[in-house]
Design a protein around this nucleic acid. Sequence first.
RNA 1: GGAGCUGUACCCAAGUGGCUAAGGGAGCGGUCUGCAAAACCGCGAUCACCAGUUCGAUUCUGGUCAGCUCCUCCA
Length: 461
Amino acid sequence: MKLTFYNTASRSKQEFVPMVEGHVSLYCCGPTVYNYAHIGNLRTYIFEDLLRRTLEFNGYKVKHVMNITDVGHMTTDADAGEDKMEVAARRENRSPLEIARFYEEAFFLDTQRLNILRPNTAPRATEHIVQMIELIGRLEQNGLTYQTPEGVYFDTALFENYGKMARLNLSGQRTERDEVISDDSKRNPSDFMLWFLNKPHHLMQWSSPWGPGYPGWHIECSAMSMQYLGETFDIHCGGIDHIPVHHTNEIAQSEGATHHPFVNYWMHGEFLLMNKEKISKSKGGSINTLQSLVDAGYDPMTYRYFCLQAHYRGELNFSLDALDAAASGLRKIYALSEADDPLANKEDEFQAEHKRLLEILNDDLSISQVIGQLHSIGSRRLWLEFDQVLGLQIEEHSRRAEEPLPQSVQDLITLRNTARSNRNWAESDAIRDQIIAMGFDVLDGPQGTQVKRKLLEEAVR
RNA sequence: GGAGCUGUACCCAAGUGGCUAAGGGAGCGGUCUGCAAAACCGCGAUCACCAGUUCGAUUCUGGUCAGCUCCUCCA
């Protein structure tokens, strides 16, 4: 079936046609591992997971690569900036590499809890320095670089289509701001560093043909994507903030080296907003992590579901109220019973709905619409089918209902039944509260009392 | 200054040139219950404002206002 994606390069929806039939090469910009990922970061990985699952749902074999940025990068091009990896190292009294490995593990724990499929390959920048040096060498051979005491720069003026994808208007770009320290040795404001030199304070250093130093931020993605996916590949994605600088520079340095197109489809996820503002890693510290939501009693699936209710190209406003609403909605999905499936024994209708929903999904990942439709239809079987894409672990969660009640709960039910037959409502209600606190729903109906396990943790606020 | 995004009911949010503007949550009413809860049924919007295009606009175009993001590391 036809697949359509919004391509940032053309600023329009385009039919997706991979280079090799049936196969997709997918590169996603990964985390810089100097701190915990915040939920805004995680939204983007949920979007990319949705993309990957949609491709696979359509029968494509996906090769998914995501970089791990474990090299520190200066906060500015000049020497005065502070390196986040090193700041973290000092803060936690560990080596930069220890910091990197620690937060890399934390990152994958978060993505695993969110049921985000692990990339086939997650190369680390520090393990691909050779490839980066090689790529810089190719750029040098092509005459696109120049060297200053600060390092090796990419000369953006010599790359014809610089900023085309981002539609940059270079003359209008702001070049002087208080926070930005200008480097007089730069030829053009938009030139960017390929290899830093003469930074004796920087802890992470490698030797290179230009002298000891460390790579610029952008070069790792070019070097590693090329190594694992080839010089041209199908889809590259990341956060929307990467369009003007990071991805612009990736294109320049990749195509400047290879003289081939770098990427066919660019896809970018919008920001998660909190109080109408973007969540900042540096401002927020380690608050706003997935763990903080878990500590508050939310199941990670609640956050995943919350994100899937909005389109990836639109901003999404996060609040605990909104998250609670998502939890209630998700609970409803988990509680759907097979017996009441309106599409049971209606194979034709099931297939028709399946096709209709897939068409919606394939129109630029309109998963929120699919979710709305699934709620309206109310077919557990259809939910389960699309859970391959939703990744909400519906089967696993609803299976909880089948687990036998613990003895302690059964004892309480017996106690409560006695109290109820004695019309001792105070005691009955107290026991009920106790059972509910243990994670169960208590239902008194005409056929007596039923106790059901809650299918989703409830947050305490 | 340059580039871009957003504004839909109490909250989150989808969507469309015209027929009932999805869905979830909250709220209210009802069924059920000893009372609740859960579940089920029922109930909600002149789509920021102004002008234009059009037979017809929430949807297209222009403007205004408000908010946000990027041009510094950043999902």
